[in-house]
Write a protein that binds this DNA or RNA. Structure first.
Length: 667
DNA sequence: TTACCTCGAGTTCA
DNA sequence: CTCGAGGTAA
């Protein structure tokens, strides 16, 4: 290989990297577009002619590589959580109060624009972009590396060889959206509904060459593994991201109190339309990482951040009808059928009305003009009726007295708002139950959607969940819109689902009060269906997280003769009924001082954060409680311990200092 | 709840 | 080529 060639390729890459950064990140181009394109074309040509020169971080990657056949799943190293929402000033002040209660009054916040796009994660190793993924459910997303590489403001190589995972929001600028839709219309194609959908659609293309044409952009706003970077605050993290060559959003402000935050949010309500991209709110984060750690997380979101959402767009339309649906549990849900109307970027035709009380409370009549908005900008909601638009032609809506599907009498169980069909043979309930059984969190049978289930049920090919495992391929092929290929895939998916761990089956069965979480707890504790079937109420209540209601529901369920029969059938058909997930370690089996003990932390800890301490204790089988009682085994008293220390003395509880705790933890 | 992409089925036309 | 289903995102 001629040396000049190698040198030229290197030079081109260097120049293109530099120009790219100037243009897309700094917004200060030093060369014309034509010059850039010329260099890029030369590089692409040289690499094509000399395949040995190709490289993952070459700017030539921006034009899009070979099409993919599927998106691979990727597990995020640290989960991508969603944020809690604030809809008004009061919510923000509540948030501030909670934060200061946790970490004291010395708090600064960083307020940033919340870009309306798609959350993505970007992984770099030794400064090289190696993988990009969607958020997915927070822990597992899809690998969209090839498409993300076509976004010019994503650096393929960082200014320093660090290994880092960053998070950002990919979006389509308003301008690109408008011109893309103009192009589409010229070609006679359907335009995209809004920039966010356009961006999402672009990133879901299997062919990255198409994504490359879509002019997407990104703002990077966070680091997944900040502990490894040496920075100690969110604002420091953003500065680091700038330094590494990422594009961050400059419209951010460090605020020393909540009033400044509120002023920032309200100033953007007016400035929002003038931005070249869409935003749907403001994100507020506690700046200090130490304080973030101290605040920790709730089950679904960090306690140190919140998303302020701009007031939702409200639109007037007419409610033409109310439809009734029977759910899996027999609950009757009324749904408003609306005259189609555009709200917040999409056309809304229906909105759930939840129950009869809500209809009465809002005094909704058929034919009323109503205000509609999208709560959290996603779920449509009828806000209220426009009484002044009443003509007298409106009709009262009456809840039915009988099930719309099986015509049996509906009942309202005491203290419940819902009206229910309690006929266990109600076809609607059976059908919905089957749909639930195959759904993702339950048995997860791919290719079996609502429609196919409804069709199978209609044609009496299945009448309970065991029948699914009796289906034959030729029965499927005989159905409408079901060919050889689909049928094979479906049978395969059904067979695969037999191997599922017990909790999936338990959740799928749809026992009252047993959701995905409880199903897992039960499966972990009992490990086999037989043991669970013979459990008594006392056995169940003894388990943490299982209350009386749930215990009763479980016992009642397994005592029904038809359930016993169903489970026998499933077993005979080869469905696994054992727990096959990671083994739950029995607390008594842990060889640790903390096993089975209840520990309370108080005062200011110096070595560990409160959360770290809690996690470590729980890992060793201990339980961390909030206040001291006679059941407390041990109190860890940090600096300036207060009333809890007195309480402990009163109850004769053993007291340790933090050092002693750390020693024991590290044993 | 709606929009978007992808896939397979079924139809139409060369 | 069109249609409808499934899966994913917000």
């Amino acid at each position: 290989m001629p040396e000049e060639l190698l040198a030229r390729v290197k030079e081109l890459r260097h120049l293109l990297h530099k120009w790219n950064h100037e243009y897309h990140v700094l917004d200060q181009p030093s060369v014309s577009d034509a010059e850039y394109d010329k260099a890029l074309n030369e590089l692409v040509r040289l690499e094509e002619e000399n395949p040995s020169l190709q490289s993952e971080d070459s700017p030539s990657q921006r034009v899009g590589g070979a099409p993919l056949s599927v998106f691979e799943k990727v597990e995020h190293t640290t989960p991508m959580l969603s944020l809690g929402n604030a809809f008004n000033e009061e919510d923000l002040r509540d948030f501030d109060r909670r934060v200061r209660q946790g970490v004291g009054n010395e708090v600064s916040y960083v307020a940033e624009l919340k870009i309306d796009g798609l959350a993505v994660s970007l992984r770099y190793e030794d400064g090289l972009f190696i993988q990009g993924a969607t958020r997915g459910d927070g822990s597992v997303g899809e690998d969209i590396t090839q498409n993300l590489k076509t976004i010019r403001s994503i650096p393929l190589r960082l200014s320093k060889p660090v290994s880092i995972e960053v998070r950002g929001e990919a979006f389509m600028p308003k301008k690109s959206f408008i011109s893309l839709n103009e192009q589409k219309e010229e070609l006679g194609e359907e335009p995209f509904a809004n920039p966010r959908n356009a961006a999402a659609g672009s990133l879901r293309q299997l062919d990255p060459k198409l994504a490359a044409k879509r002019n997407l952009d990104i703002y990077v706003y966070g680091i997944g593994n900040p502990a490894t970077t040496g920075v100690n605050s969110h604002s420091g993290g953003l500065d680091l991201l700038d330094e590494l060559g990422f594009k961050t959003n400059n419209e951010r402000k460090k605020c020393s109190n909540i009033d400044e935050v509120i002023e920032f949010t309200s100033s953007w309500v007016e400035k929002r339309p003038a931005l070249p991209y869409e935003i749907d709110g403001i994100v507020i984060k506690v700046d200090s990482f130490e304080q973030q750690d101290e605040l920790g997380f709730t089950a679904k979101s960090p306690r140190w951040a919140i998303a302020y959402k701009f007031p939702a767009e409200e639109v007037v339309t007419r409610l033409v009808d109310i439809e009734l649906n029977v759910g899996r549990t027999g609950v009757i849900t009324p749904t408003a059928i609306l005259e189609p109307v555009r709200v917040a970027g999409t056309v809304v035709k229906r909105a759930s009305l939840h129950n009869e009380d809500l209809i009465r409370e809002k005094d909704i009549k058929l034919g009323d003009y109503v205000i509609v908005k999208k709560a959290g900008d996603i779920i449509p909601e009828v806000v209220h009726v426009l009484l002044e638009k009443r003509t007298g032609e409106e009709k009262d809506f009456l809840m039915p007295t009988h099930c719309p599907e099986c015509n049996s009498e509906l009942v309202r169980l005491d203290e419940e708002v819902a009206l229910r069909c309690i006929n266990p043979e109600c076809p609607a309930q059976i059908r919905e139950g089957l749909i639930h059984f195959v759904s993702r969190n339950a048995m997860n049978i791919d290719g079996l959607g609502e429609r196919v289930i409804a069709q199978l049920f209609q044609e009496k090919l299945i009448s309970n969940v065991a029948d699914l495992y009796r289906l034959q391929k030729d029965q499927l092929v005989a159905m409408e819109r079901m060919g050889e290929k689909s049928a094979t895939n479906l049978i395969e998916a059904i067979t695969t689902s037999k191997k599922n761990s017990l909790e999936k089956l338990l959740f799928g069965l749809g026992i009252r009060h047993v959701g995905a979480k409880a199903a897992k707890t039960l499966a972990q504790h009992f490990e086999t269906m037989e043991k669970l079937q013979s459990a008594t109420i006392d056995d169940l209540v003894a388990i943490n997280e299982i209350g009386e209601k749930m215990a009763e529901a479980v016992v009642t369920y397994f005592h029904k003769p038809e359930v016993v029969h169903l489970i026998d059938e499933l077993k005979a058909l080869g469905v696994n009924t054992d727990y096959t997930g990671p083994k739950l370690v029995n607390v008594e089996d842990i060889d640790s001082f903390f096993a089975g003990k209840t520990i309370v932390l108080t005062g200011k800890l110096e070595i560990l954060t409160r959360n770290e301490a809690k996690e470590k204790i729980e890992l060793l089988g201990g339980k961390v409680a909030g206040s001291v009682s006679k059941n407390t085994d041990l109190l860890i008293a940090g600096e300036a311990a207060g009333s809890k220390l007195d309480q402990a003395k009163k109850h004769g509880v053993e007291v340790w200092n933090e050092e002693r705790l750390v020693l024991e933890l590290n044993k």
